[in-house]
Simulated scan of single mutants.
Amino acid sequence: MADITKEAVQQGMDSFMATFGRVPDNFKLLAEHAPGAFAGYGLMRSFVMRGPEAGGALDLKTKELIFALLDTLAGQTTGAKNHAAAAMRLGLTLPELAEGLVQVLMVGGVTTWNLTGAAVMKHCAELESQGGE
């Protein structure tokens, strides 16, 4: 593996650790078997997941909410739950999440709510009732 790819893989791993606290198993698998692809993804992720103090335009709470909403629209329930929980750790409220999920419902239809949105809302409500994760 070329040095530039190794550096980009490490940057992607570092980005996950900094914002998520771990590297998800599916991304570890990608890094192991397709390091060039993970390197490209990792560079995009480290660019997007910069806070304003590091040159990012949006705060991390907003970025996590956006990922949760996009994952909901795509039907990626696990990712949507993980990103919504991360946004809650950064201060997202249940009313804010509900508004965003309703926007997804408006664009993607009631199926997005039935397949993913409701599960995300329930997951985050349970997290809040437990006092966090």
Rank of each mutant, 00 (worst) to 15 (best):
Y41R: 00
P35A: 05
H33A: 06
N26Y: 14
T72K: 00
V48H: 04
L127C: 15
D14E: 11
K122Q: 14
T72Y: 03
G40N: 04
A57H: 13
N114Q: 15
R45Y: 15
T72H: 05
A8T: 04
S129Q: 11
C124N: 08
R45T: 08
A34E: 15
D59C: 01
E96Y: 00
G91L: 05
L92T: 04
A86D: 05
T19K: 02
L73V: 03
H123A: 13
G132F: 08
N82W: 08
L115W: 08
P52R: 10
M17N: 12
L30A: 07
T112Y: 05
C124D: 02
G132Q: 14
T5W: 00
V9K: 00
I4H: 14
A125M: 12
G108D: 03
N26M: 15
M88F: 09
L69S: 07
G108W: 01
T93C: 13
C124T: 04
G42W: 02
T19V: 15
L43R: 05
R22E: 09
M106N: 12
W113P: 02
A2G: 10
V23Y: 03
M13C: 02
T19Q: 15
N82K: 03
T116H: 01
A68P: 09
L94D: 07
L30D: 03
P52D: 07
E7Y: 06
A74N: 14
A74V: 13
L105P: 01
E128G: 08
T5N: 01
T112F: 04
G91A: 01
M88H: 00
G100C: 03
T72G: 02
